[in-house]
Amino acid sequence: MNIFRLSGDVCHLIAIIILFLKIWRSKSCAGISGKSQVLFALVFTTRYLDLFTSYISAYNTVMKVVYLLLAYSTVGLIFFRFRNSYDSESDSFRVEFLLVPVAGLSFLENYAFTPLEILWTFSIYLESVAILPQLFMITKTGEAESITAHYLLFLGLYRALYLANWLWRFHTEGFYDQIAVVSGVVQTIFYCDFFYLYFTRVLRGSGKMSLP
C-alpha cells in the first residue's frame, strides 16, 4: 500500500458516494447514465468474486464489500426507487458494442484461462470503457450538472492516482500488472477531454458544464 493507491481508492469511494448522495437527496437521477452504473456494478461483481477465494487484508475486504453495496444501491435508486426521473431517451448508448468486444478480449488476453481469471480480466477491460455511456449522454444532452461533473472528476482522479501507484510499484517492487496498466491508461485517456471541460467550464463558469 502506498499513498497513491490509498488516495486513489479514497477518490473512487468519494466519487461513488457523491453520485449516490446526489440521487438520494435530489430524489432524481436526471443526467445520470443508468447503463454506466449497471456496467460498474458488473465490473465490481466480476472482479470481487475473489472475496470468496482469497483473503488479502481487512482493508481490501471491507472496501470491496462497500464498493459492491454502493454500486448496487445506486443501480437500485436509478431503476427502482427514482425510476420516473431516469432519462432512458438520452441514455441510448448501445452497451452490447462494449460488452461483446470486452468479453471476447478477456478470453483472448488473460493471465490464466480459468473462470475467475477470465472474469477478473473482463472486469478490468470493462471498467476502462464503462464510463462511455455517461460521457455519451453528456455529449448528447450537451450539459452536465456540476455535481455530476464532480463525480466524474473524482473518478478521473482515482484513475490518475492509480497510474501513479503503478509507476511507484514498478519502481519500488518491480510489480507490473500489464493488463491493469494498459487498460488503466486507456481508461484515463477517456477522461482527458472531460478534465479539460471541467477546468475550463465548471470551475470558471456558473456551475453547469455545457459543451460547445
Binding site: H12, D50, I56, Y111, F175, Y176, A180
Partner: peptide, 10 residues
C-alpha cells in the same frame, strides 16, 4: 512480475 499476479488492488 509478468504472468500470474495476485490481485491485491481494488
Amino acid at each position: 512480475v509478468i504472468g500470474r499476479i495476485r490481485h491485491d488492488e481494488l
